[in-house]
Design a protein around this nucleic acid. Structure first.
Length: 597
DNA sequence: CTAGGGTTAG
């Protein structure tokens, strides 16, 4: 886009007309520095307070993530109307700032600007949570928009994102609607499908007066999400028209079923391969540890002239984090560096997470410290990362910095800091956080937080407190809690003291091989060999059902995965010989294996 | 306004 030339004779009316024409195309400009030049010209001509021009500018700045400019421009409008606020709300939503979107909505009300029907669809996109959607619903009723199909459709969509209760509310709203269009049906079908209520979704789909491709895709996605790939594929084949969404949904379906061959066949057959399809197939290979194929396709995608978007980058980095594929992660990082405007908060967070999980803490830290803007997720990720790598004190320091800088720690942040304290042995520090969490930050502890606390106390040798907490917490103990207690008992040889309570808890969970193996160790330490044999037998019966854990390593451009008793590698004999030699060496220099059995 | 990929949680 060409930058506007300064206007020499600013006769207001004609100048404004010139801008009006050029400004309608402003949203196509993706370069922030060009936009800043345009803004300078507009300031010079004193047109920045004009509502029409200002709203176009807000929209354009928000599209290239320049929210500070967008907000400044909005603040300079003399008498902002509903449209001016709608654009600002949409700008915040687009840039994943739901709380600011809500703040804009509140400001609008306090200034007495009446919302219009377009306000709610934007606003509702920002919300997740039954209470806030219900509150917005009440607002809609108060302002008398209950008959507007646009608003009602948005409410149905927003409600159905809020779990089972939300879907109920959506159903009620849908049934009360005087008029329904195909969007109402599609929102409802997709909501039901996402909640796993496939039969109802299918009934609605069958009774719809007209089905366009969107409805088919919604029900297709429902089957895929509930793991019914075969049904989904039958439907896919009977569709009158298939678009790229239908194809990519099926590719995802087969990837989720672990059938990468079928996923790949469909991907190859796709008439038009878009970013989402590339993302699904590449992340699929990365997830499965097929580094070479993931890498090859990633290069192929870039060679085809496609630039990975935010979703692609986040998705692939997530798969790299899970499988430890730092090589592909670095490759993605390189593409991000090449176009510097793609470094959004979310992309940076995904990079930090990837490096943390791949064991490259220094790289994670350098990205984190280089971020211009951070959100709670950034802080939670790095705090958890420091904890994972054993730097408990550093995690604690960053937690204080986070709160000093005005970020509210959420339930995930607390899981991070509690597990960091646990790993670093900072027992009292951890207990303090657990109390402050509810008292100072209003975060109500969930079972996972109790899990962290049981682990923290158990690792720290405060077994009785750990058992006390497990008994008195407002949740039923689950396998994680049992696991933490078993690990603590094994570590501190405090078997007899805790045995009775332990046996009680253990009844709850005999389906977890990890826990059973710890239990067997504990029985062995007490000399109860009959129970050891029982536990071993259970484990043996289960090992056929459940895949065992695996470790992996990347060497050059090869990726190796290995499991217990693995003999699949061609050089297995050599490898096990080497392990024996290492073990011998360790014993010589004084290492004692700790397993008491 | 409706469909597909997607960052933090042993």
């Amino acid at each position: 886009m060409q930058v506007l030339a300064p206007i020499r004779s600013p006769r207001w009316i004609s100048t404004r007309r010139i801008f009006e024409q050029k400004i309608s195309d402003l949203h196509k400009c993706t370069d922030p520095s060009q936009l800043k030049q345009v803004l300078a010209v507009i300031y010079k001509s004193n047109l920045h307070a004009d509502i029409f021009i200002a709203t176009k500018l807000i929209s354009a700045f928000s599209l290239c993530r320049q929210m500070r400019s967008a907000v400044t421009i909005h603040n300079q409008i003399r008498q902002p109307d509903a449209q001016a606020y709608n654009v600002l709300i949409r700008a915040h939503v687009r840039n994943s700032q739901p709380s600011q979107a809500f703040a804009a909505f509140s400001q609008m009300q306090s200034y007495g600007v009446r919302p219009n029907v377009f306000t709610y669809p934007f606003l509702l996109k920002a919300f997740s949570g039954l209470e806030i959607v219900a509150a917005t619903h009440a607002h809609v009723e108060k302002f008398g928009f209950v008959e507007d199909i646009l608003v009602l459709n948005s409410l149905i969509e927003a409600y159905s994102k809020c779990g089972l209760m939300g879907v109920c509310a959506a159903k009620k709203l849908f049934s009360l609607m005087v008029q329904r269009d195909h969007v109402s049906y599609n929102c409802m079908i997709s909501g039901l499908a996402k909640a796993g209520q496939l039969t109802e979704a299918r009934e609605l789909f069958d009774e719809m007066p007209e089905r366009d491709t969107v409805s088919w895709n919604a029900i297709l996605d429902g089957y895929v999400k509930s793991g019914e790939v075969t049904v989904a594929f039958q439907l896919f084949q009977s569709m009158p028209l298939r678009d790229s969404v239908s194809w990519s949904t099926m590719v995802l379906g087969y990837r989720k079923a672990g059938n990468m061959e079928m996923a790949r066949n469909l991907f190859d057959e796709m008439p038009v391969k878009n970013m989402v399809a590339w993302t699904i197939i590449i992340s699929g290979y990365a997830e499965k540890g097929l580094l070479k194929e993931a890498m090859r396709l990633y290069n192929e995608m870039e060679e085809a002239g496609l630039k990975p978007d935010e979703g692609t980058i986040i998705s692939i980095l997530g798969a790299c984090a899970d499988s430890g594929m730092v090589g592909l992660g670095r490759r993605v990082h390189d593409s991000v560096k090449r176009n510097r405007f793609s470094f959004s908060i979310r992309v940076s967070n995904a990079l930090v997470n990837m490096y943390v999980k791949c064991g490259c803490l220094d790289e994670a830290l350098s990205i984190f410290h280089g971020m211009k803007e951070r959100n709670s997720v950034s802080w939670s990720t790095i705090i958890h990362g420091l904890g994972l790598h054993g730097y408990g004190e550093k995690a604690v320091q960053l937690f204080s910095r986070m709160t000093r800088e005005g970020f509210a720690p959420n339930k995930v942040t607390f899981l991070g800091i509690l597990s960091a304290c646990s790993h670093a042995g900072l027992v009292d520090e951890g207990i303090r956080y657990f109390y402050r969490m509810q008292r100072d930050y209003g975060v109500i502890p969930e079972i996972e937080h109790y899990g962290c606390m049981v682990d923290l106390l158990g690792r720290g040798g405060r077994l009785m407190e750990a058992f006390g907490l497990a008994h008195n917490m407002p949740f039923e103990p689950n396998d994680k809690i049992c696991g933490a207690l078993l690990a603590a008992c094994r570590k501190h040889y405090a078997v007899t003291r805790a045995e009775d309570e332990l046996k009680q808890l253990v009844q709850l969970d005999l389906k977890n091989t990890g826990n059973l193996s710890m239990l067997s160790d504990i029985y062995a330490a007490t000399g109860d060999w009959t129970s050891v044999a029982g536990a071993r037998l259970c484990m043996k019966n289960m090992s056929s059902e459940k895949p065992s854990g695996a470790s992996s390593i990347e060497l050059g451009d090869e990726y190796y995965e290995f499991t217990m008793m693995d003999r699949s590698h061609p050089k297995s004999d050599m490898i096990y010989q080497m392990i024996d030699q290492l073990g011998e060496h360790l014993r010589k220099i004084g290492y004692v294996h700790t397993a008491s059995c």
